[in-house]
Write a protein that binds this DNA or RNA. Structure first.
Lengths: 208, 208
DNA sequence: GAACACTCTTGACACCTTGCCAACAAGCGG
DNA sequence: CCGCTTGTTGGCAAGGTGTCAAGAGTGTTC
């Protein structure tokens, strides 16, 4: 028995440890509401002292915000991979791409977009807003609009409106399971088609 | 000096006290996120001992749920006042009715639908769901569907999807002010028209 | 290979919040 | 004026969070 002094704990690179804690936190926040997840729970799952969480993220809330931020940040490989065909094809492809992405990180995505109800929270709201804005930009570009368009801000607003529908549809599909993927796809791509082909041209003539 | 023994506190009817605490709580939850409002804050504003809150509502969370529930309950005078004309007219009228209602209770409505993103919470989610469900039912009836329709559940799901867009549009209009009422009206009524005339017929052939 | 230094990690401490409960007292009925 | 009902208070115990000095793993040096 070479009784080598077995270390009680392993020392990791900060980035590594940070990521590990982050992952465990993301899992837990996906399973239970914010208040029902204690830093002790996160520490336990990560096999780590509770204080380490504060060391890396400062605050439970900050850790939570980091999780939300990453869950809502979508990979920017959207536009490049979309076809060039007619509008109907492009909307189909865009929605498909999106549904794929969402189904990969179901839990986290759902948790991030699920409203808790009354009361506003500046930080979370800002993160949600920016994520929506980025996503809307990608969608618009995929649909063939340019950032130089003089109505860009209004276009963004319209698509962000659409984003509300996308989120609700995701919940019906993944959470409530009242619609299947095919049905959600139909709803989202038809509506997107309507927006681009029908609504946006009209809206141009109603600027305040 | 008729040194009448000045009472340290007044005794109220249970309903009265309950309502008073409820009101203060609603105010505070409207100003700050759930976690940032302590029962001590509520008690202070109500001029009452903290323990009394637990006595009446049992739990901080229960009080919060009561507030959310009341904020989301909407007046059921929708269907009766809608015209009988062609679909486009009905969608126009329905959206108009809705925008009127919303603009009347801006603050409460906005506070109630603004996502806090603090994760999932069965109870709150259920309350939001039921509110959406009721609203969706009203919309469908206004659009001429019957509750006996064998696809009723799926119809509800689709309209609830639409509800997500309605909320997002309300925020763009009232909160961010990136779209004016006319534009929001166009977006919402056109999309509703698409749903009823185009999407729902298709969805029927895709039931899982 | 032993001592060293660096810093990642721990464990305990103080503070705050929530829910509980027994005692108190306001106001009505006799 | 007295006593009863019960609305109301105030303090206690459990649990959660953030901070911080001390401890221990791991690479480096001689």
């Amino acid at each position: 028995m070479t009784a080598g002094s077995a270390p009680k704990w392993r020392r990791l690179e900060p980035d590594e440890r940070r990521e590990q804690i982050f992952t465990c936190a993301a899992e837990l926040f996906g399973e239970r509401p914010y208040a029902a997840v204690s830093t002790a729970d996160i520490a336990a799952r990560a096999g780590v002292a509770r204080g380490l969480i504060n060391h890396y993220f400062g605050t439970k809330r900050a850790l939570y915000l980091a999780v939300v931020r990453r869950a809502l940040t979508l990979p920017p490989d959207a536009v490049t991979t979309l076809p060039d065909g007619p509008l109907a094809e492009r909307t189909d492809a865009a929605v498909d791409w999106f549904l794929d992405m969402v189904s990969k990180q179901q839990k986290t995505w759902l948790a991030a977009i699920t409203p808790e109800g009354i009361g506003r929270d500046e930080e979370v709201e800002r993160i949600l807003d920016e994520a929506d804005r980025d996503a809307a930009g990608l969608v618009l570009e995929a649909m063939g609009f340019s950032r130089d368009d003089d109505r860009w801000e209004q276009l963004i607003a319209v698509v962000r409106t659409y984003a509300g529908m996308v989120k609700a549809a995701s919940r019906e599909w993944l959470d409530r399971e009242t619609l299947n993927r095919s049905q959600v796809h139909t709803v989202l791509s038809r509506v997107l088609h309507t927006l681009v082909a029908d609504v946006i041209p009209r809206a141009r003539n109603q600027s305040s």
